[in-house]
Design a protein around this nucleic acid. Sequence first.
RNA 1: GCGCCUGUAGCUCAGCUGGAUAGAGCAUCGGCCUUCUAAGCCGAAUGUCGUAGGUUCGAGUCCUACCAGGCGCGCCA
Length: 603
Amino acid sequence: MRADRRRPTPALRPTQARRPRPIPRPPRARPRLILRRTPEMTNDAIRSALEAVLEDMGAPTGTITLEQPRDPTHGDVATNVALTLAKPLSRAPRQIAEEIAEKFDLAAAGVDAVEVAGPGFLNFRLASGSVVSALDDILEADTTWGRSEGGKGQAVMVEFVSANPTGPLHVGHGRQAALGDGVAALLDWTGWKVHREYYYNDAGRQIDQLALSVRARYRQALGVDEAVPDDGYRGEYVKDVANALVAEVADRYVEDNSDEALDAIRTHAVKMLREEQDRDLNDFRVSFDEYFLESSLYSGGRVDGTIQDLKNTGLVYEHDGATWLKTSQFGDQKDRVMVRSNGQPTYFLPDVAYHMTKWERGFERVINVQGADHHGTVDRVRAGLQALGLPSGYPEYVLHQMVRVVQDNEQVKFSKRTGSGMTLRELYEQVGVDVARYFFQMRKPDAHLLFDLDIALDQSDKNPMYKVQYAHARMCSIFRKGEMELEDVEAGSAELSMLSHELELELVKRLVEFASVIERAARGSSPHVVCDYLERTAGAANSWYHAGNPSRNPELAVLTGDPALRRARLALARAVQIVLRNGLTLLGIDAPTRMVREDDQEN
RNA sequence: GCGCCUGUAGCUCAGCUGGAUAGAGCAUCGGCCUUCUAAGCCGAAUGUCGUAGGUUCGAGUCCUACCAGGCGCGCCA
């Protein structure tokens, strides 16, 4: 059955291209009538063969799980059914496994061998060529390899960053920007229709503090002695905003303490700082489909409408002059105030109003990416939404821990511009956007992130981001060396079963896993899973590449003498390149075809 | 005091739905090397999975208690 994939040795045909083509290729594969064998199909075949045996033995068939063993000596596919059946059949697991192995139909499952191992595992070794044939699928899929359709095109909103426009973005926002963008990309790659949203809190008390701080600096700039409020903003950037205001309006507001004047200052400050944030994010390759302004909730009447709606639920009461909502009925630790005794709504209210708009805009699934310091608001917001009839788990949250930037074993805290922590821009202008994005995504959100500048600045393979980029560039360099283009290697152009070296087979197995890795990462909103995969795959690719170094094992080189073997290895190199590139693309990182070190440029 | 997160090799961290002998990178040690251009390659050593119980064929993974660290517990945002 494997034989039908073989193609006759191609007849040589004249080189036809403008470019030299050192490697004669077979004619483009005929329309492929042969069903391609995906890993899922292989598993299905094994599964149904197992079900047949279990039925024969009178055992339940519902619980078969197949997995890929870590240890390659445990075969290509393994199952623990015999272990799980020990109890229902009240027999020793190994004995059950022996019987299954004996009755198993190897040919029907496309398996070369099955053996019993350990406490009763069944290990299957796939027919040779079955694994390696997946390379054609990778070449065929190219930029879409790794994509899947589980999301069925449904709409999902990812809200992230949502920083107050009161100052420059810092490294914590950077983690959130990269993480949120990664989560959004994972959803996109698994078939969701993703909407990226940024919520600007442009209406709160903090904005008032900003306006007062800017006004003080503005007056100072014009020689008037006015102190910045105690709880105001003190970073250097406030002076920049004030100086820009001087340039724009000269001394118009020096003695004007009216609300109108303060409004104008506030508007000026918010506009300028928002523009700076947008610039910082844009240069960090993060962009949004929609910017939602908190102020629009008030001006559009949504906040008042939400109070009314909540009152209509009968879950609202007055106490000590304030208006409360019985959020404790929905799992919150205590009831919350919606409207203070002074008539001002608390932050809780616009928050609920905002999330109602998400639902009403058609997003039945929403993921909020936030710093873990906000976890206290999760139950509260959900409770408010439940009171209005939304489902209990709405919205979902990805909460991430803080970032520490470390250099020479010491924490970097200083930023001239903000007077406190390092800004996002300061970070990525130092280490590069690719490294910053990778480092922010390579740890699971739950864990504190230690951003080690020494490693980030290292441009060797010690830096995981460069390790992946180097592996990608190495694959590309093979093609340059062979005077070919990447596109010259097409699906069906090689006799893939010639790939038989352990390093090659290990690599192929990894490449095949790619889509399931992305699905798992998407399921857990965990871009770090992709980083981990890319790093390991790059490691395997680098080992393979280095093994073929002419000074070591020239017979393992991709550009080896045997044309057929060379074609097969080029297909593998191309497939590696595709997977690494797609993975980096998902993470929002470049996949250069060649690497230039800064040191090289200096020379 | 209550709630959430974290605790895995010297360091930074993976560990999928509970599976086989707990894995990477850095650092350390040993040996190669100048390339299918890439400060490189190959190999070795390293563990009380915070502690103590429990669940079961099987626990780093699930449950309970405790210890340590971070964060949150306003009519602040």
